[in-house]
Design a protein around this nucleic acid. Structure first.
Lengths: 218, 218
DNA sequence: CAGGAAAAGTGCGCACACGCAAGTTTACCT
DNA sequence: AGGTAAACTTGCGTGTGCGCACTTTTCCTG
């Protein structure tokens, strides 16, 4: 195992992280994203403002983190769950689609809030980069040693493609007038099927996956 | 033409932009990157600090901009310069390599300075994203309408790959002690051939380019 | 060629990011 | 156990990011 006992130190750290995330999201929902200062979030979580940004580099990151928490681990697990005989391009695509569509009620509500503010949308899009390390690991696992280099490039390409898909998906929500009062816009649900967008965007990369896979098992 | 007369307004804007870039780089070289405040840069360029960050979002961006200025336009021209019959993957790779290796004396010196500070290195790496729009345009040009979608993904993948190559190339320069006094480290020249790194990193994407190209001209 | 709209520059003020140097808690070792 | 080293938290100070309101410059149109 890689986790003998997590250790008290680490558990406290994660607890603080979660407390900050939840406080940030709760306050953002309650009074609107712009009416929340880091000082408020820190106070609600019981830490100092200085400690706050030992955990988060910006106000937006904390709010977004409440939605994206644990995504890195889940996407790795999702790839690992696919049968080893499966085409690598398909395994990755399915894992990614599953990750961005099978979301809970709470995540959907929060995501709706996020679409109302440009700063939040960009912070959310930036979290896409977080899937790169786990993807690199899982792809490298399937490609073996000769494909370790390609794995890095492919994972980065997938992350870039996912970001593009999300950008396109969030674009219609970019109207500035509907975001005037935060709780009003229930109609800003992004257009089109996210699944379809993700699949279509990842499709051009499939040949690169196939070639890399072919290089390991001729 | 798309530039009938540039207009006085636009010329002044670009002049200010250049003045800020040059001032930032000059001051950074003269007294070391950490001993320069935005106030100093703004003063040297003859504008207010407030105006400064109508142009740049951070102190590092201005310094780095002096090196990367015009890269977007040059990379587009570099791709356009390749014969139309050429394999697209090769055209893009050559254009990128040319862009990052055929640099002048002044750029080399500035790049040396950049490697000495983590903040500057990251700002420099972030500029890699700027090549994506021109690449998208040039790739889309060669792929035609049916490949417009793939062009976006491929360009983003190239940008991601280039960033990876640059990260690896700059990694050995990450020693913190050699960066103590700014002008001292002439030995922090990054290891290996940048050309080779770029080619090796872009290589896994070639099959994706080939497949996209094949789709347009069977 | 006037006159007004649009855009750029500027001064002000607040919130945030982050380095530094304490002080405090946790972990590990003999 | 006891002691020490490492990690985490925190207060403080500075530099920076940016919204807002206002002035100046540029451009367009009647």
């Amino acid at each position: 195992m890689t986790t003998p006992p997590p250790g008290l130190r680490e558990r406290k750290k994660q607890a603080t992280h979660e407390a900050l995330r939840e406080a940030a999201l709760r306050l953002a929902v309650e009074r609107g994203p712009d009416q929340v200062r880091v000082e408020d979030i820190a106070e609600a979580a019981g830490v100092s403002p200085r400690t706050y940004n030992n955990y988060f580099a910006s106000r937006e990151q904390a709010i977004v983190a409440a939605v994206t928490a644990g995504r890195e681990a889940r996407i790795a697990a999702a790839v690992a769950a696919r049968p080893t005989g499966m085409r690598l391009a398909d395994a990755v695509t399915e894992a990614v689609v599953e990750q961005y569509t099978n979301t809970g009620e709470r995540e959907q509500r929060a995501l709706l809030l996020i679409t109302t503010r440009t700063a939040l949308r960009e912070a959310f899009l930036d979290t896409t980069a977080d899937i790169e390390p786990p993807l690199t690991a899982m792809i490298a696992e399937r490609l073996g040693d000769v494909g370790a280099h390609a794995a890095r490039v492919l994972a980065a390409s997938v992350a870039a493609a996912v970001r593009i898909a999300l950008e396109g998906w969030l674009r219609p929500a970019g109207n500035s007038e509907a975001a005037e009062s935060f709780g009003a816009g229930g109609l800003v649900v992004p257009s089109g099927s996210l699944s379809d967008r993700l699949r279509a965007t990842l499709e051009p990369l499939a040949p690169a996956f196939d070639a890399a896979e072919r290089r390991t098992q001729p």
